[in-house]
Design a protein around this nucleic acid. Sequence first.
DNA 1: AGAAATTTTGCAGCAGGCGCAAATTTTCCT
DNA 2: AGGAAAATTTGCGCCTGCTGCAAAATTTCT
Lengths: 205, 205
Amino acid sequence: MTDRTGLRERKKAATQAALSAATFRLAIAKEGLGNVTAEEIAAEAGVSTRTFHNYFASKEAALLHDFNETTNALLADLRERAATQPIWDAIRDAAIAMHLDEKFDLETMRCREQLIHNSPSLIKEQSGQFMELFSEAIGIVAEATGAATTDLYPRLVLGSALVCIKTTTEHWLADPGDRTLPEAIAEGFAVLERGITQPPSLPGN
Amino acid sequence: MTDRTGLRERKKAATQAALSAATFRLAIAKEGLGNVTAEEIAAEAGVSTRTFHNYFASKEAALLHDFNETTNALLADLRERAATQPIWDAIRDAAIAMHLDEKFDLETMRCREQLIHNSPSLIKEQSGQFMELFSEAIGIVAEATGAATTDLYPRLVLGSALVCIKTTTEHWLADPGDRTLPEAIAEGFAVLERGITQPPSLPGN
DNA sequence: AGAAATTTTGCAGCAGGCGCAAATTTTCCT
DNA sequence: AGGAAAATTTGCGCCTGCTGCAAAATTTCT
């Protein structure tokens, strides 16, 4: 039922995943996505160059494919929660429920981070995807709350929340300490709830 | 003294501005930067295609040139303020002091916004520049407060502040009401100071 | 004016990305 | 099973972006 078109959909998802994985593998092997060509990726995945571009508009998009899937899941979850919770709580809980640390192992996530961090084009692509996430989320929020998509407050809320997720995750990745990722994210949200001017413990000045 | 190398520096700045302006003009005329080639831009500015690429790595960068200058000014201002004010206040006041609405006229800013909004590549470029702004600002903050560049709190602060600036500006641009841009920005910052969960007046659910 | 430094330009080349139509594969229907 | 219909893969050509390199033109300095 969910795979009415079964095999076909499955195969497409498979090659897409294969291409994404190949991209990641090569990028790490060659120390930078910039040193990898679309042709190489296609070869590694066993398809033609043209096919690679049928699936992904760019190498960058290919590398960030699972990031994209993650955000889609987040959106779906948010859509549900927004129906019954206040925005802020919905976003926070959806973010906490992501549990990225159970989906990917630490080492992989760190490699990804490094790869992105050293590549301007990847930074741009990722930021771009964040903006898209923002747009779609705004749509959800607007629909759920009846607010206009142009209202300031929901945009501030959503923006802060996304920054919080990204920032906190990066920080946790660099030094997990003894917390899980969801715990770390929860702490980040707590800071924003309290009012940003109230530093947590060791203030920066 | 400031123009020791005088004429030369001046001319370079002039052609750069000319290229940027030409890009803007053409992008508007052709309803999208995507419909403009680097060759056309160069021609419009009266230089060779190669020269265009000497100044800008991409069409996108050319179009966002003055945005970039603005953020550089912001950084310079922030650097000064960070020496004597708490981070949050320094950022807020620097943002307020930008006074973009006195540097550009409303119509121009709106065109820019539209152009960016309808172009994925421009969104990416702009987000990328925001990330750069973030990195440099983090450096300033770290130096001023003695915090590590990896600390969570300053990153949260800075991130929220940047989101606030961008969001509030966009919102003001769409509907200035009877406020000036600095006033609008100040309101945005106030929301974050109060704690994001406290909506201003008309809560979104 | 003439030498030195710098900028502009053309050229060649690689790579990204897209439209199109032919070839191949998968699904569907009888 | 078998063949028609639908969708995917592929190759090809094309345009554009962007970079390195070396020659030509321009500016600065003495």
